[in-house]
Simulated assay, not measured.
Amino acid sequence: MSAPVKLGLDTFGDITVADDGQPVSHAQTIRNVVEQAVVAEETGLSFFGVGEHHRSEFAVSSPEIVLAAIAGRTRDIHVGTAVTVLSSDDPVRVFERFATLDAVSNGRAEVVLGRGSFIESFSLFGYDLADYEILFDEKLDLFSRLMTEQPVTWSGRTRAALENVDVFPKTDAGLKAWVGVGGTPESVVRAARYGYGLMLAIIGGSASRFRPLVKLYHESLDAFGHSGLPVGVHSPGHIAETDEQAWDEAYAGFAAMNDTIGRERGWPAYNRMRFQHDVGPEGALYVGSPETVARKIATTVQTLGADRFDLKFSTGMLSHGHLMRSIELFGTRVAPLVHEFLAEGAPAPRS
């Protein structure tokens, strides 16, 4: 890496619980997300990302609006999505919304484009899952043309054609875009073809499994004539003063979310043994003390040559207070340790 790794946070606006154990309202959760972003900036972090979902477990269905509120409360931290489900949206409207966010944030907007890991938005907005692949292919192609900020002529199967159409507002210096990838080579090559940063969503298994995809991305960038584009990592985690405290605080939320999704997808029930594996060196959860999490992040960054690491810090049952403390620890203690460990050669996480 030619520059120090950038560290950020992602949230899906997970519905948390209050001190009395009752779920917090969607409205209060959104207000809490804004406060969390303010603390992220105060601790010196580089990025705050908000995901898009359309189901009861998550409060944020319109991330750009939340991000605009965050932009109004902050000055330096970059704000963006994690991810924007482009397949079930309109590329013209997505570009317009993010160009507007870029204006109100004074050039701090980023968009991470993806197909999403949930499918509720397809039926909600009238799309057929049978068109899953072509929807993303065509819409990413149109979005890439809009990114030139020149009049666009385009036609395809998934929306009305455009003939020499100009789109507004224009940005001051262009919009930064990434493609979120879950692990398929085709998605990696697609990101390279259009000249977007690669954001790897590593939510299961060891980060080392993604090295071939990073290699493919760089080879594809060369083949398509692009260079200097970043690789990022998005992974879940939680930080507390000690490993044991972090594990105890985080387990219920991870178990509840895995079991909820698992019932829909046929996964086995989650258990503590699996959780302890996932928080270990070969797992995808960055849960523990500041030193434990920093060592694991540093190892991942070094293994993949990543330019940015975003910790998905919110998962279900954790209270707003726990999340705020996790953010503080990430910015004030984890971030300096990551840079220190990378300078020393990124020692392997302790088992």
Results as ranks from 00 to 15, higher is better:
V17R: 15
H238E: 03
A99C: 08
L285H: 05
A256H: 08
T303M: 14
A298H: 03
A256E: 13
I15V: 01
A207I: 11
F224L: 10
L311R: 02
P185T: 12
G305F: 05
V66L: 11
G288M: 09
F224H: 14
R55L: 06
L162V: 10
A173H: 13
S61T: 15
K176V: 06
V79M: 14
P281C: 01
A298D: 06
K139H: 06
L113A: 07
S144E: 05
V79G: 14
R73F: 07
A69C: 06
D128C: 04
G197D: 05
I327T: 01
G13C: 08
K6V: 12
A3Q: 06
Q22K: 01
G205E: 10
V231W: 05
S319V: 10
R115E: 00
M324T: 12
F125L: 09
A191E: 12
R211F: 00
S227H: 15
S289T: 12
T11H: 08
V152C: 03
E120S: 07
A109D: 04
V79S: 13
A335W: 00
R190S: 12
F168T: 09
L198S: 10
A298M: 06
G225P: 05
P281R: 00
I239C: 11
T81P: 11
E282A: 15
I70C: 13
G197F: 09
V152P: 03
I30S: 03
V79C: 15
V181A: 06
R263S: 05
A160C: 00
E41H: 04
A109E: 07
F210E: 01
V39D: 07
V293E: 07
E52I: 04
E110C: 01
M317Y: 12
R308F: 07
F143L: 13
F136W: 15
R193D: 06
A71M: 11
A160R: 11
F118R: 13
F275D: 08
T84F: 12
A346R: 08
I134K: 15
T300R: 11
E328R: 10
A161L: 02
V301I: 14
T299W: 15
H339C: 11
P185I: 11
I297K: 09
T242V: 03
P212Y: 10
H277E: 15
T74E: 09
Q22N: 02
S62L: 09
I15A: 02
A306S: 15
F330V: 12
H339R: 14
R190D: 02
A37P: 03
R145P: 01
S208E: 14
S117Q: 01
G321C: 07
L304P: 08
V167D: 05
V83K: 02
V66M: 11
M1W: 07
A256C: 01
P151C: 04
D248G: 03
A250Q: 02
F168N: 07
F12H: 09
R333T: 06
L323M: 04
G232S: 14
L329F: 05
L198E: 05
P212A: 03
P290L: 07
H78L: 05
T29V: 11
D166P: 08
G197P: 07
L337D: 03
L7S: 08
Y127D: 01
A207T: 00
A269H: 09
P268D: 07
W178H: 02
R75H: 14
